[in-house]
Write a protein that binds this DNA or RNA. Structure first.
Length: 892
DNA sequence: ACCGCCGGGTGCC
DNA sequence: ACCGCCGGGTGCC
């Protein structure tokens, strides 16, 4: 049944003003079944996810005492010192100023007394104030109870709000009476008593943040567990730990963090909320291991080992002698870590009894089911559970703006990558039923889907289907795993809802970067995990986020306790039993300075002084940013010069182009675009600053993304000019590179010493279709004799998952703006499966824009290290930083 | 609510 | 009495 859907709609119904209107005095009795069901859904995600004001920047206005009235008419109860939420109810038929008071579960407790409500309504409606309440005593009164109200808002609005309240005869007390600090013993189980109200400095806070995920004492997470035999890859110790931890979490019956039993009630120690029903255990969490530590493998092991009810997936006959090693696939290297020698049988005792006689050949089940497949059914449990691995769309995002056909291919590719992992790690004899729920042909039949063991899909598919009779939202999943879960940290409301409303008890988030920008990232994840009461952003904010950002040590301790409870994270440098998680070979980065030849230097100098003059003029006029495209053009040309003078079209060459016949011109331009595309450097489009997407060349011989330049022409018409050289451009003069012309295999690469020297090489860049990319990677990683020994790789090509361990030497021909992009690129070969020391050489042209880029890189590194916890830079600060960067780059 | 408030009943001492 | 006082009805917004 469509349980998830009904939950959602039931909530909407309760929220609607009509309901309240019909529920006149004494008759307000929501159907208990639904009401209970919506309890953990009270986080009206619509409100919280869709552009709500920035809660971080709120300041304290003051406090006052108010009264909650009408208690008799509502079912919501509170305890003394319990937090309550205030919510405007403009549609109340008796008073359009009405302000509802709800308990932590979202159940209405009463209303704010009307005189005060009349004062609050206008400022609440105009979002000048955010109201929070705590009932200090009298929680069990019959008719009315007191409430301590605190007022929060933007600093700019403070005076207005105070004046407004004064005009209504209410004076706010400016002293914050530590409702946020006086939590009793909070860290569930730590018993260390109340924390002294010690304020942390911004610096201390930052340090604590940095350590938050790195410094988890993993004493309780060192237990190892062997996966079932069906996993043919030998797990590394840290993966066995992950497995043990995840299994124990899934089978846990512990109370969730910050909940404790008191008598026959369950108390939340953060909000002082209590209820009879035991809050659901958190049967999942965050696997936040660093990239490359094998999160997906750990989860696959989990799925098979702890499939359902603490039992492994019933498997067919499995082999045990021949083991794959834990190298990352078809690497030409033999596996590292000396695991090849480990041939002892793995598996656990439970597994044997769970073996099932039926063997199935088919590993991937297609869209329709036939009678013979009905035979598989008896194996399934009653609830017909399945597992969904929601994959990310990063590839698609990297290609945004590409034709839809291209996009689709790449997304499927991402899912295929996960499918590949299953194939790689799970024995072929295991009749694991995997279904890829993706594309127009996907089965909309929940029954056939729920007969799968694993369903793979993408975030966008989940979102697209949501509310559209989606089978994904009808199935009660065995577990839902969000791969690269951080990609939904800043989602739109629909995506959040669609993903959060997937129905599963076991809920996992895989991410290498659990917190990237702020604590909000974490909230999004916690909300997905359905950790009460954090599904509602208000409670997260009041109990954790605000105390922490205000420097409250108790808040930080709670945060630490929480993270420790639900997260497992190891970095590449973490140690297991005194040994590093990954004993990767060394990685050395060298910078090789390059001198330009006299001739090149001459060209460079003239172009540099020309560029400096232009940019210098913009500086004087204060119009650097309005001419940003021109500035970038200068920089791009300087960078191109550092690579090779051929890359730059000088003014003279475009002059000569003019004299050519149209046919000659066309040929020259095609040659030129081929040169750019095949140069091996990651050519950027000067408009979007990203890799070239659907590249075209202008008559003035500049290459841009087609959509980018078309937009420029459109917006500047009828006199559009080339963003790089300001010569006239016309839509009908744009030339595309003929498809067959950038067939990579036979490309002549003018930049490298490689073809002439007889090297076999391949290439990978953003302009290549997905199929070519896969071929390139496969041929490169292959151990065959004629396999290429060199890959020309563009900095931005491919996803983070790309495995190029066949390479142990990296030559970076031109530096990237963003050091993280370089690092990521290096990590593609310096990862699990690499056996040799990796030597990286960054070529940097002496006395050039490239050298200055290094300076910017180190600044960016510092910034990235300190970005967390501090406020995000404002637009003007960003501009300021940009301008500074430009100054550094051109030595002005 | 063991209150406040409302409005009808009532009206010397 | 266009008041005061009494006591019953009543009760969020």
């Amino acid at each position: 049944m469509s349980w998830g859907f009904m939950r959602g709609s039931a909530w909407k119904f309760l929220q609607s003003p009509q309901y309240t209107r019909s529920g006149s005095r004494g008759t307000f009795a929501p159907p208990n079944l639904f009401y209970d069901d919506v309890q953990d859904n009270v986080s009206s995600l619509d409100d919280s996810a869709s552009g709500e004001e920035d809660l971080d920047s709120l300041v304290f206005f003051g406090m006052m005492k108010g009264n909650v009235v009408g208690l008799r008419y509502y079912a919501g109860v509170v305890n003394n010192n319990e937090m309550v939420a205030l919510q405007r109810e403009p549609s109340n038929p008796y008073d359009r100023n009405a302000v509802k008071v709800n308990n932590v579960n979202g159940e209405q407790v009463g209303h704010i007394k009307k005189e005060l409500a009349a004062a609050l309504a206008p400022i609440m409606d105009r979002k000048l104030v955010r109201m929070e309440g705590v009932v200090p005593y009298g929680a069990h009164n019959v008719f009315t109870m007191p409430v301590n109200l605190s007022f929060w808002g933007k600093d700019d609005d403070k005076k207005g709000v105070l004046d407004h309240m004064k005009a209504h005869g209410y004076k706010l007390d400016p002293v914050l009476k530590s409702s946020g600090k006086s939590f009793p013993s909070l860290d569930a189980g730590s018993g260390s008593g109340a924390s002294p109200p010690v304020q942390l400095t911004v610096e201390q806070l930052k340090t604590e943040f940095d350590k938050l995920f790195e410094d988890l004492k993993e004493d309780d997470k060192t237990q190892e567990m062997e996966p079932v035999k069906g996993i043919q890859t030998v797990l590394l110790p840290h993966q066995k730990q992950a497995l043990a931890w995840m299994v124990s979490r899934e089978n846990s019956t512990e109370l969730p963090p910050f909940w404790e039993q008191r008598g026959n009630l369950y108390y939340n120690t953060l909000t002082n909320f209590a209820e009879k029903e035991r809050p659901e255990s958190i049967r999942g969490g965050i696997l936040a291991d660093d990239m490359g530590l094998g999160k997906t493998l750990s989860v696959i092991a989990l799925i098979l080992t702890n499939f359902h009810d603490g039992q492994p997936l019933p498997t067919g006959k499995v082999r045990s002698e021949k083991q794959k090693t834990n190298s990352a696939g078809k690497s030409r290297n033999t596996a590292s870590q000396g695991q090849c020698s480990e041939t002892r049988e793995i598996g656990n005792s439970q597994e044997a009894s769970a073996t099932v006689s039926k063997r199935q050949k088919a590993r991937k089940v297609k869209y329709d089911f036939n009678d013979s497949e009905e035979e598989w059914l008896p194996r399934k449990t009653k609830s017909s559970p399945a597992c969904s691995l929601v994959d990310d769309d990063q590839f698609a995002m990297a290609l945004s703006g590409a034709s839809s056909g291209k996009k689709k291919k790449s997304k499927t590719k991402i899912i295929d990558k996960t499918t590949d992992q299953f194939e790689q790690h799970v024995q072929a004899e295991v009749d694991l039923k995997i279904y890829v729920y993706y594309g127009p042909e996907r089965s909309k039949d929940p029954n056939s889907l729920s007969q799968q063991d694993v369903v793979l899909t993408s975030y966008s598919t989940v979102t697209h289907d949501y509310g559209n009779n989606s089978p994904l939202h009808k199935i009660k999943w065995l577990r839902v795993v969000l791969d690269e879960g951080h990609t939904i940290r800043n989602p739109n409301a629909k995506q959040t809802k669609a993903i959060h409303s997937l129905d599963a008890v076991r809920r996992w988030v895989l991410t290498g970067t659990p917190i990237q920008n702020s604590l909000k990232d974490l909230w999004s994840i916690l909300s997905f995990l359905k950790l009460k009461p954090f599904t509602d952003r208000e409670w997260w904010h009041r109990t954790i986020q605000r105390p922490v950002t205000m420097g409250d040590q108790g808040g930080l301790r709670r945060l630490q306790a929480l993270v420790k409870n639900i997260t497992l994270r190891r970095t590449k440098t973490s140690k297991v039993k005194g040994k590093p998680v990954l004993e990767l070979p060394e990685r050395k980065v060298y910078i090789q300075y390059v001198q330009l030849s006299t001739e090149e230097r001459q060209i460079y100098q003239s172009m540099q002084s020309e560029g400096k003059a232009i940019i210098g003029r913009y500086f004087n006029e204060g119009t650097v940013l309005t001419h940003y495209a021109d500035v970038l053009a200068v920089l791009v040309r300087l960078r191109q010069l550092c690579c090779h003078p051929h890359l730059v079209s000088s003014g003279s060459s475009s002059a000569s182009l003019k004299e050519a016949t149209p046919e000659e011109l066309r040929e020259k331009l095609i040659n030129k675009i081929k040169l750019v595309l095949n140069s091996g450097s990651d050519e950027e489009c000067a408009i979007c600053l990203d890799s070239l997407n659907n590249p075209i060349i202008t008559r003035c011989a500049h290459v841009f993304c087609k959509p980018c330049i078309c937009q420029v022409i459109h917006s500047e018409k009828p006199n559009a000019k080339c963003p790089l050289c300001r010569s006239e451009i016309h839509l009908e003069h744009l030339l595309e590179c003929p498809e067959e012309e950038f067939d990579s295999e036979t490309v002549h690469c003018p930049n490298f010493v490689c073809r002439e020297s007889g090297f076999i090489f391949t290439r990978l860049d953003g302009s290549m279709p997905q199929k070519k990319r896969t071929e390139a990677i496969q041929s490169f990683q292959s151990t065959a004799d004629d396999s290429p020994t060199i890959m020309l790789l563009s900095l931005k090509a491919g996803g983070v998952g790309l495995n190029l361990t066949a390479a142990s030497r990296v030559f970076l021909m031109d530096p990237a703006w963003n050091p993280a992009a370089e690092e990521q690129c290096f990590d593609r070969c310096h990862r699990l499966g690499q056996t040799k020391d990796v030597i990286i050489t960054k070529y940097v042209v002496k006395d050039s824009v490239e050298e200055n880029m290094l300076k910017i890189q180190s600044k960016k590194r510092e910034l990235a290290a300190g970005a967390f916890g501090t406020k995000k830079p404002s637009a003007s600060e960003m501009k300021e930083a940009r301008i500074k960067e430009i100054r550094t780059l051109v030595d002005l």
